[in-house]
Design a binder for these strands. Sequence first.
DNA 1: AAACCGTGTTAGGAAACCTTACGCAATTGT
DNA 2: ACAATTGCGTAAGGTTTCCTAACACGGTTT
Lengths: 111, 111
Amino acid sequence: MTSDFSYKNKKVITIGIVRDLTGLSERQIRYYEERKLIFPERSPGGSRKYSFADVELLVEIANKIEDGVQTHEIRKEMLRAQKKQSQDDVRKKMIQGQLNAQFGIRKGPSS
Amino acid sequence: MTSDFSYKNKKVITIGIVRDLTGLSERQIRYYEERKLIFPERSPGGSRKYSFADVELLVEIANKIEDGVQTHEIRKEMLRAQKKQSQDDVRKKMIQGQLNAQFGIRKGPSS
DNA sequence: AAACCGTGTTAGGAAACCTTACGCAATTGT
DNA sequence: ACAATTGCGTAAGGTTTCCTAACACGGTTT
């Protein structure tokens, strides 16, 4: 239902490209992973694979760090944001459910 | 004006990932390049870099080849399609120019 | 003062990629 | 019929890219 078939979230970019795209060093990129701010996938051989969304996130992270925010704090912020998001999702689903109950009942032999 | 700032056309994917994404062999992917059907960029070190658009194109190419169409023919088709496209672009630009001339004149000291 | 933070750098090794070239069945062109 | 081309597989040898682990180090925090 939610598209999410987007290119934005496919993990297909190697760390060298991410380095070029963000201007960060590989060391930095790996370090932010170590601090659980980013979660690349791995190829069978162990190489990291990032998405465009990851690239954007990395830039945001780098900006915050420049502003003196610690990875520790950034992580908390992210968890907070994430939690609120999932709450919002639940609410939306509930409303959707209400609507379906009222009007959208299209189950059973009705063709 | 035309966005094209899309992820779809950024060349960021290495050949191994393209292989996984398309199911083609690296040999095939390189061969189609040799036959001028696809044009990856290169990293400073010489590694090929593809876009999602390239990946889609590769799948189309592979399908045609399965249907017995030769690379030679596919290339012609592509050139044809490309030419028509650029013609269409020109027409659109001309119309745009007309409209600007009629209504959109916003140049010179007018603030 | 001790511990932690964010990063550069080095070292050694493995994975991924590159080009070149031979081979070969199947098509295509002459 | 026969030569040439097509669309790959595969192997060899070499370069690039990526990986982890570890030491260093100036700045914060605690």
